[in-house]
């Protein structure tokens, strides 16, 4: 067993454990922390797959930005530690159905995967490395790269507009402080 396969099994086991702990947590903040651990372990899996840039994106976007959104939702909802009640009728049955469907789909995908001998050869060189991506980004893809900044600008202005629109009825002078 090579070191990479060993690492895959160790990280995979830790991933399953952290996912289980996330689901079992009664406190939403604890669940969010377990999810951070889950995201970081997924980043390690990307590193095993020789995709360091995807790993960095996984850490920055998922463990960073997405998790901040989750924590904000927890903060804004004022989430108390949750009970094991079933607030929506039949959601457990739905979850079981979803699990069965997912396992069925994954089984089909695994069964149809090409045999090890017929797999496409691994990508050579530094494909997917941050350096290669940087070079491609600033030579062939300069214009789309700048469009990204425009799209982010639109998203930012849109977020500010929508948030302000919601609080138009309040006088900002009175509510401040």
């Amino acid at each position: 067993m090579s070191a990479e396969v060993l690492l895959f099994y160790v990280v995979g086991a830790l991933l399953l454990l952290s996912a289980g702990a996330m689901i079992r947590s009664n406190d939403p903040v604890h669940a969010a922390l377990w999810m951070v651990g889950n995201f970081l372990l997924t980043a390690v899996l990307y590193l095993v797959l020789q995709a360091p840039f995807i790993a960095a994106v996984q850490v920055i976007v998922y463990a960073g930005a997405i998790m901040v959104l989750f924590l904000f939702v927890v903060m804004l909802l004022g989430a108390q530690p949750m009970t094991r009640s079933e607030p929506i009728a039949g959601h457990r049955a739905t979850a079981v159905f979803g699990l069965v469907a997912l396992v069925a789909l994954l089984s089909v995908a695994v069964a149809r995967a090409p045999a090890a001998g017929r797999m496409p050869p691994p990508l050579t060189g530094d494909f997917g490395s941050p350096e290669a991506i940087g070079q491609a980004l600033f030579t062939d893809w300069v214009l789309p790269f700048e469009w990204v900044s425009l799209m982010l600008l639109v998203a930012l202005i849109g977020a500010v507009m929508i948030a302000r629109f919601g609080s138009q009825s309040e006088d900002p002078e009175e509510t401040s402080g």
Binding site: F53, A56, V57, I60, V61, G64, A65, I66, V68, L69, F72, S129, P130, E131, A132, I133, G134, Q135, L137, F138, F145, V148, S149, L152, A155, L156, A159, V160, A163
Partner: peptide
């Protein structure tokens, strides 16, 4: 604040390959 943070976080991703290359 979270939304603005997410946008600048996405910006950071582009700084990474830029800095390496």
């Amino acid at each position: 604040f979270a939304l603005i943070f997410v946008l600048f976080d996405v910006e950071t991703i582009f700084l990474y390959p830029w800095a390496v290359a």
